[in-house]
Simulated scan of single mutants.
Amino acid sequence: MLRLTTALTAIAIAAPALAQEVNLYSYRQPELLAPLTDAFTAETGIKVNVAFLEKGMVERLKAEGARSPADLIFTVDISRLAEAVDAGVTQAVTSEALAANVPDAYHDPEGHWWGLTTRARIVYASKDRVDPSEVTTYEDLADPKWQGRICTRSGTHSYTIGLVSAMLHHHGEEYTKTWLEGVKANLARKPQGNDRAQVKAIWSGECDISLGNTYYMGQMLTDPEQQDWANSVNVLFPTFENGGTHVNISGVAMTAAAPNRENALKMMEFLTSPKAQQIYAEANYEYPIAPGTEPDALTNSWGTFTADDVNLMTLAALRADALKLVETVDFDG
Rank of each mutant, 00 (worst) to 15 (best):
L2H: 06
F237K: 05
W146L: 02
T306H: 06
V235E: 05
A253T: 09
P35G: 02
A7I: 11
R28P: 02
E294V: 10
T304G: 03
F270C: 04
E294W: 05
Q226T: 06
N311H: 09
T160W: 04
A297T: 12
A97Q: 15
M268H: 09
L72Q: 10
D71K: 01
G111P: 07
T94M: 08
N242D: 12
N311K: 05
K127S: 00
V235Q: 00
S210A: 15
D128W: 07
E241N: 00
T214K: 00
H157C: 11
K145F: 12
L236W: 01
D108C: 05
M313Q: 10
Y280G: 01
Y25V: 09
P259L: 14
A276S: 02
T152E: 04
T328N: 05
I11K: 06
L61V: 14
G243D: 13
D77G: 07
A19H: 05
T6Y: 02
F270A: 08
L81F: 01
N260T: 09
Q226V: 00
V85C: 00
M167P: 11
D195A: 13
K184N: 09
F40P: 10
A297W: 01
R129A: 08
A188F: 13
L81H: 02
V123M: 07
A14M: 02
K62P: 04
Y138A: 11
Q278A: 06
T328A: 15
D140G: 14
E110S: 12
G292K: 02
V199T: 03
V252W: 07
R28Y: 08
L180C: 10
L2K: 13
T90M: 12
L187G: 01
W203N: 03
S26K: 02
R319N: 10
T245R: 04
M1Y: 13
Y215E: 15
K177E: 08
Q219E: 14
H169D: 11
W179H: 08
N234Q: 08
K266A: 15
T160M: 12
V50M: 15
T245G: 06
I150T: 08
G303W: 04
